[in-house]
């Protein structure tokens, strides 16, 4: 099933009707030209009418299709599970911040769940040719095929640990450096001040090449964090 990054752009598909409307409604009266050899034009039209009508129809359809393709491309289609050849093999380190703060419930949903669903989507897009590592709050990088890692994400719980984002990124960077594939680090975190300040203070972050790091933040808590016991109990 194809999903779209910017589904609202699909509204632009209405524009597909523009060539059709122009063709049917907005036709202006062409200028009149005196031409004595109209009989030759009539003969030509008689002989080639079918071919030209077909060409005209094909041209109209191609125009409509072109607009549709442009709109669909602009909406950012994604193919869950990946399609062979959908992207070049890549190395990916998925950093999931499952520290204690992820046990909090924000707007009726646990923060951990908010981090888990993008992690699942990312792993679904990963193919057999990709090299993937999962790095959680315990700081141990787990390597494996996307399906196994997806199971680990499903079973992941909040850990009573502090994630040092700086150290995690450094680890991720070293993992990527060990692979010849083009690499990417994706950080899924609620960006707690403790984790961020640790990352900001870590000079080793400078070594992460530009464009390699992508961060997806979960909703921040709007009320004071409850204890893990409270969260589990609620």
């Amino acid at each position: 099933m194809i999903s779209f990054t910017l589904p609202w752009v699909l509204g632009g598909l209405i524009a597909v009707a523009v060539p059709l409307v122009l063709h049917l409604v907005a036709r202006r009266e062409p200028p009149l030209v005196s031409f004595p050899a109209v009989r030759y034009l009539e003969d030509t039209a008689r002989r080639h009418q079918r071919r030209f009508r077909l060409q005209h129809l094909v041209l109209l359809l191609v125009r409509m299709l072109l607009i549709a393709v442009l709109v669909l491309a602009a909406a950012g289609p994604t193919m869950p599970g990946g399609v062979a050849g959908s992207h070049a093999p890549a190395a990916l380190v998925l950093v999931v911040d499952n520290t204690l703060s992820s046990a909090a419930i924000v707007d009726g949903t646990p923060v951990l769940e908010q981090l888990r669903s993008p992690a699942r989507r990312i792993l679904e897009r990963a193919g057999a040719g990709d090299r993937v590592w999962l790095l959680t709050a315990d700081g141990i990088p787990r390597s494996g095929d996307p399906a196994t890692l997806r199971e680990q994400v499903d079973q992941m719980t909040s850990l009573p640990l502090r994630l040092d984002l700086g150290a995690a990124l450094q680890t991720a960077h070293s993992l990527l450096a060990s692979s010849p594939l083009a690499g990417e680090i994706i950080v899924l975190s609620d960006l707690q001040a403790s984790a961020v300040s640790a990352a900001a203070g870590d000079r080793t972050l400078v070594g992460v090449p530009e464009g390699t790091l992508r961060a997806i933040a979960a909703s921040r808590r709007s009320r004071p964090a409850r204890s893990p016991g409270e969260a589990r109990g609620g």
């Binding site: 009266e29 062409p30 200028p31 009149l32 030209v33 005196s34 031409f35 004595p36 050899a37 109209v38 009989r39 034009l41």
Partner: peptide
């Protein structure tokens, strides 16, 4: 451009 060709005779 599209035009309407008319025979001045007929």
């Amino acid at each position: 451009a599209e035009a309407r060709f008319q025979d001045p005779e007929s």
